[in-house]
Write a protein that binds this DNA or RNA. Structure first.
Lengths: 327, 327
DNA sequence: TTGTAAGCGTTATCAC
DNA sequence: GTGATAACGCTTACAA
């Protein structure tokens, strides 16, 4: 490995001088500068970030903690974060938490051990000690927090919209699938839907689900139509679950949307490709990832912060699993 | 931040002793050990990995470079890698290359600057200087390399199988969609398909495509049926493209699989959820990710290597976009 | 304008 | 068994 010493020797100067041209601070004669720059080029030198990080007690690394990159919603978030970070010369240490506090803690710890300068996390508990005790900026992504920096979509409103659209399009026996109780965004969209249903005195049932995995979702879908065979409208906890419901409806030879309407949540790639294509509540995941990264960078670099809590609007994507409404 | 010095002071010993108990080497009296361990617990001390990394010139970090985490195939690979690494106390620095040499180089460089001990990369050019010049182990994932460690699926055989199944099930005017020419696995599966088609003297056309993005794929699908309206069998370059073809076929009111058969590649989540569900060539992506990680760890830790080039078999998933064959 | 040297938090060598 | 201390590669006072 070539170090700053090698460059210094080559150029016939001290390491301090090399460091100065590297970082562009302090005085350095134009001639010296070009000599040094040439040596850098000749030796193909790049500074050791670890040594830098040790001295400055800060790196160019960011910790990114997501529940599960295999869930199709999260890659969009991740890519948004990555693109913004990459453009600003930050790098990502990445981990999956599986919504497990234990794994979450382990990652946060190793983030700290590696001198990350900031963390982006999708946690269900932003008030946990591991975050409040951190002395670097944290941005919560896809998770709400009132008093701490966060970027999220308006899930509650999403739930409301889903219920409204469902009723507007004529469903009378609505089943709301409640996502895992400990996953905050899942809870919020559920509450939003129920709020509207209650308000309007509509008939509805709740089916509790405990995971977003496809295999489990197929089981929930089966249960759904077994327990509530007369349901004519399903508000699913996300698009994966909605897909499973759609598939099960097909299997039972129910017509969609004539016999049952289905509304999902997230608007992942899959949704528009299904036949019939899935009506769903769209979240701008990629943009949310970017926004979280931008916010974190502002926090890190001590810039002026406009808003430290950014809520993105959601949007109903009318596709083919809901009926047309006469205008 | 609490350092080894703080622990030493608390425990009334020198930093050397603390280091010894931390790393479990050298002699240390049982009483001293427990005193030190207690101080570590009390102060909630964890060693600074950056300082360690500087001294030892190696970290617990791995560089992972994938083309695009938003392409549904890669999250499975990534998760496989992550799970295996996490279980072995390694952490991942992650980047997307977009199949661009420039981005790839930037990432490899920052990997090195951060003292990563190994790299897993999906590159199209394993022989590039940036890899050959690296003095840490590299494993190529989802990319073939004869003489360097790599983990990949038998894409060529996948292409062959696709062509065979297509003909076996009665397609006479097959269109093979060729993926981006510079993406190695895409090329291999294409060549495999053509090999069989040529061998059997079958009629076929080729449609070149340049990307795997859904938006582009829809354009290719449109072109496909415009240029080759009589095609009765499509071998797509991956499942995303296959989905777009399926959608376009629906739009043109072609029956699938009666009028056109479609075979995809990858077997992503989406494929089994489509209606009709997509017949495709399955790659065990998650397992491939794990295998790559395991191999890299063996390389890093200097263990005995069984095989440094691991090829996974692919498998035809018969679903509903291909016709049944009489047995 | 440049060089010397201390220090970032570890580990490992060598005395004691 | 244990403690000083040099070293890892860099940045930054401070001196010159």
């Amino acid at each position: 490995m070539t170090t700053i010493k090698d460059v210094a020797k080559q150029a016939g100067v001290s390491v301090a001088t090399v460091s100065r041209v590297l970082n562009g601070n302090g005085y350095v004669h134009e001639d010296t500068r070009s000599k040094v720059e040439q040596s850098i080029r000749e030796l193909n030198y790049t500074p050791n970030e670890v040594a830098r990080s040790l001295y400055k007690r800060k790196s160019k690394l960011i910790g990114l903690l997501l529940p599960d990159i295999m869930n199709p919603y999260f890659p969009q978030l991740a890519r948004g974060v990555e693109d913004e970070m990459q453009e600003n010369d930050y790098r990502l240490i990445f981990g999956n938490s599986d919504e497990k506090k234990q794994k979450e803690m382990e990652y946060i710890q190793t983030f700290v051990q590696n001198n990350v300068v900031g963390v982006i996390s999708s946690t269900n508990d932003p008030e946990a000690d591991m975050y409040t005790g951190l002395n670097i900026p944290v941005v919560f992504l896809d998770r709400t927090s009132n008093d701490r920096p966060s970027v999220f979509a308006d899930g509650r409103e999403g739930g409301r919209i889903a219920a409204q659209e469902m009723m507007l399009r004529g469903s009378k026996e609505i089943t709301v699938m409640q996502g895992p109780a400990d996953v905050r965004p899942a809870l919020e969209r559920f509450e939003g839907a129920v709020e509207v249903l209650e308000d309007r005195g509509a008939a509805y049932q709740v089916l509790k689900t405990t995971s977003f995995s496809l295999t489990d979702a197929e089981g929930f879908a089966y249960e759904l139509f077994r327990q509530y065979p007369d349901t004519d409208g399903v508000i699913a906890s996300n698009d994966i679950v909605a897909s499973a419901v759609l598939k099960e409806a097909h299997r039972l030879e129910k017509r969609v949307p004539e016999d049952v309407q289905i509304i999902g949540f997230d608007d992942i790639l899959l949704s528009s490709l299904l036949a019939p294509s899935l009506s769903t509540i769209h979240q701008p995941a990629y943009e949310m990832g970017r926004a979280a990264a931008r916010l974190l960078i502002e926090l890190i670099e001590g810039q002026h912060i406009e808003r430290s809590s950014i809520e993105f609007p959601v949007e109903f994507m009318e596709r083919q699993t809901t009926r047309k409404v006469e205008s």
